[in-house]
Amino acid sequence: MSTARTAGNRSVEASGSGELGPALRVTRIVLITLGLAGLAWGAYVLFDSVKPARIPGIALWMGAAIVLHDGVISPLVFFCGILLRRAGHRISGTVILVVQGAIVVGSVMSLIVVPLLIAQSRGTGNPTVLPLDYGVNFAVFWAAVAVVTAAVSFGLYARGRRRLR
C-alpha cells in the first residue's frame, strides 16, 4: 500500500488484523458482528414498518444528502479556506485561524437556523411553535460573531506586534 494516503485512508487489508493482539482481535470480530446484526435489524424494521412505496424516498434523501455534502458543502469549505489563506498575506496565522473558526461557527449555526426561518415563514398553525423573532436573533448572532472575532483578532495582532518589537 504505497499510494498517497491521507487521514485514516487505510483499507481493511492495509490495516489487517495481524498487528492486533488477541483481545483486540476478538473485540474487532464482536464489533463487526454486532454491527452487521444492527444493520440487518434496521433494514428489517424499515421494511416492516414503512410502506414499500416510501422506501425509494428514503434512499433518495440519503443519496441527496451525500451529494449535497460531498459536492456542495465540502468544495465550498475548501475554496473558502483557500481564499482565506490567500487573503492572509500579511496577517498572522493565528488571526487567520480565528477568522476561519468564526466563519465555521457562524455557518454551522446557520445550518440549524436557516431551516428554522423557512419553517417559521411557512407557518405552523400553532402560535406556541417557533414563537421567537428568530430573524432578529440571527442578525444579532452574526453581529456578535463579528464583534468577538474582531476583538480576539485585534488582541492577537497587538500581542504579535509587541513580541516582534
Binding site: L31, I32, G42, V45, I58
Partner: peptide, 26 residues
C-alpha cells in the same frame, strides 16, 4: 418509523465502522 429504523442502521454502522478501523484507533 424511518427515524427509528435509521437509528438501528446507524448504531450498527457505528459498531461496524469501529470494528473495521480498530487497528488505526488502537
Amino acid at each position: 418509523e424511518t427515524h427509528f429504523a435509521l437509528g438501528w442502521v446507524l448504531i450498527g454502522s457505528l459498531a461496524l465502522h469501529i470494528g473495521i478501523k480498530l487497528p488505526i484507533i488502537a
